[in-house]
Design a protein around this nucleic acid. Structure first.
Lengths: 225, 225, 225, 225
DNA sequence: AATGAATGAGGGTTCATTCAT
DNA sequence: GATGAATGAACCCTCATTCAT
């Protein structure tokens, strides 16, 4: 008695479903406990599958972790195409960018801890991944066009690089969400109360936009002429 | 053969030194591998002490982790007094703040992973610490005076709260340093090359200052007159 | 070198046998050294299995202990059916009872130390066991019939309860076997010499029977007529 | 912080008191947890002394255990002199014996677990103790006189040895108290309820006395004439 | 595809004990 | 007499993983 078993005896054979369940469970567990904190047994239990299946589909714990994190990056890439602004107003484009980033991480808190975990390990799980490598370049191109249009219209300064804008935007969102536990203790106030979060979201938008507006020429440029 | 032993046989009896050595080793190991990734054996070996001593001084692995992280916060508090600017120029004050934050985390990369680890665990190790709780308030007061002076002189806008300025400053430094591994892969460029780092440091300063200058009254206020 | 391994490398895959081997080894070790004195490593070695298997089958050291002790009770229950006397002579029935008890514990000295261990821990391992709880009631019923028949025939007194007879019988056997080590020192004679043991066995029989006979009516009762 | 320390820093130097405190704590802890279950740290804490003191006074854990158990035997010997009956009535003498034994173990439940522990270890801690060896002989002499007187007066049978009477008496008390935890579960009733205990005490007395009376000559003997 | 049995290494922790003061 | 620091072995247990079915 008392045999700790991973799952019920008979289970419908559904490779796709099994694989997906493991991937989801891996995301949950790795996000909650980190790479070394998460256990194969717990993942198998959460997924409702036999431990052995994890090795069958992903080879090893690190293999699963790699798959999980690549999956996250694909989510990011997939979602990102949505904010390619067809709007002609650059300021609206930046607003959309800021909101997209904020919403993305707000809605996926696990992604943050997962990325932290990957950074803790020197990004070695994605380093050799062709799917992830330079996946960010398209982002920079979109943002680059945005910045160029803004500078052209005289509403944005022209000395900001796409990477700088992107990193600034993410940093302001990510750090707040990533470190809210310690910050809330450090400052003696709960940063995750809805009111506080909304204030911060507005602050990011303001900060990014006002920074871009600072030193703008104020008159339409002549680029392209 | 047999059992690996933790240290050399005879050791100078020096409680202070032993405790300190464990604390330092704990910082190093926890920073490098996280709470669950770090091992008592490795910590003891790094500290050059017997494993048992960790329990003697800190009760448990988590006890040591708590002590390590509190120690980090004390470092932060101790270092922070240094940027209390006696300068009368508010812009210089903000520059000092930005540089202090950037330098602090740049020089202490372990602190970042440590704080990430603590956030992964919901800040439960400092939640009940009276030493850490609200330790940030003095920061806000210093920054509050800075902002007030700047607004008074007409060089800063007056709609920014101390917490907003502080969090923005830290976010821009912290995220870049915390996530540089994945970001470097994602964008296909090494963000930690000295050149890149310097550029980013300058960017933070510019972004914070230009944001604060945006919408400033431009003329000295009448406060105190 | 390095780590002592528990067993030979390859082992026939035989769950039943493995489980049984662990149970037997647990009985031996717990009986010899008590719950806290027995070690998982020793049990595994005695059983010829890997340490991990103990957790696989029994969850924990205490889980194994619980299984061992429940197993003992099942032995007792199983063996007990044998003395249900079909003999019509009540005195013979009591003799069979006395001898059964004496032989049971004589042949299983480990059971005594095991029961002592369980009592040291407040019987908490069997307290919630449905298999053990009230397992003794059938004993009392058999003995009750025996006493009734004896009283009916006028050879037993009628003021003795089944529990009293049973406990008396076991006490006289159990204590002698349980405490012979200290008693032998205390009295300066070896109580476990065959001669001494036989004398004691005879004494128990005599004491129980003479007690039951004392105050008997001496004439057949009228019950059932 | 969190240094587990054994006692307050300064403590009145009182060798007698310290030794006594350790002995008492040892009795308590060994009785509650057995020899291997009791820990030096717990004993030191219970005694309110430094761990090192245990080694100072008793050399080792086993040394302390030996001292504790010898102490118990001295208690037994000391208390036993009290029931040397000056009464001329042998039946009263036996009643006093029975009650003394029952009361002794009832009032000192720890003694039972301690003796069990010593038996678990083959009585090796008292085996070489001159103080304990044959300490029981005086008991047998007292009881011997009691039996002789009873047989002489024709109220006791004459085929019972002192050791048999003593062991029977103790067995009936000891087993009930020693195994009440498992017995209560086994029979589904709480044997330690005051009512149940009193019934058992009366049963012991009855059983011993009726056994002794069985087969008595019924007329005063001629011994000594 | 899927499972339960089995493995060896190492996890954090506690042990009784000794050293230096 | 008394203390706190320090030790090394052993403790129970869990880990990621592989074997046999």
């Amino acid at each position: 008695m008392g045999n700790e078993q991973d799952t019920v005896h008979t289970r419908a054979r559904d490779p796709q479903r099994t694989r997906r369940a493991i991937l989801d469970a891996g995301l949950t567990e790795f996000a909650a406990r980190g790479l070394s904190g998460a256990g194969i047994a717990a993942i198998a239990q959460t997924a409702g599958v036999n431990k052995r299946m994890i090795y069958h589909y992903f080879g090893s714990k690190e293999g699963l972790f790699t798959a999980v994190i690549e999956n996250v990056y694909e989510q990011l890439a997939a979602a990102a195409v949505s904010f390619e602004s067809e709007t002609s107003d650059p300021r609206d484009g930046v607003r959309r960018l800021v909101r997209f980033v904020w919403d993305f991480y707000t809605e996926r808190p696990g992604v943050i801890t997962l990325l932290n975990a990957e950074n803790l390990h020197g990004a070695r799980h994605i380093r050799d991944s062709e799917r992830v490598r330079a996946m960010g370049t398209p982002f920079l191109e979109v943002i680059g066009r945005l910045l160029a249009r803004g500078a052209d219209q005289g509403v944005f300064r022209d000395d900001v690089e796409p990477l700088e804008l992107y990193l600034s935007t993410v940093a302001l969102s990510y750090y707040y969400l990533s470190n809210h536990h310690t910050l809330s203790v450090f400052f003696g106030r709960d940063l995750m109360r809805p009111r506080q979060r909304q204030r911060w979201a507005r602050h990011i938008e303001r900060m990014v936009l006002d920074f871009l507006a600072a030193g703008a020429s104020g008159e339409p440029g002549t680029a392209g002429t």
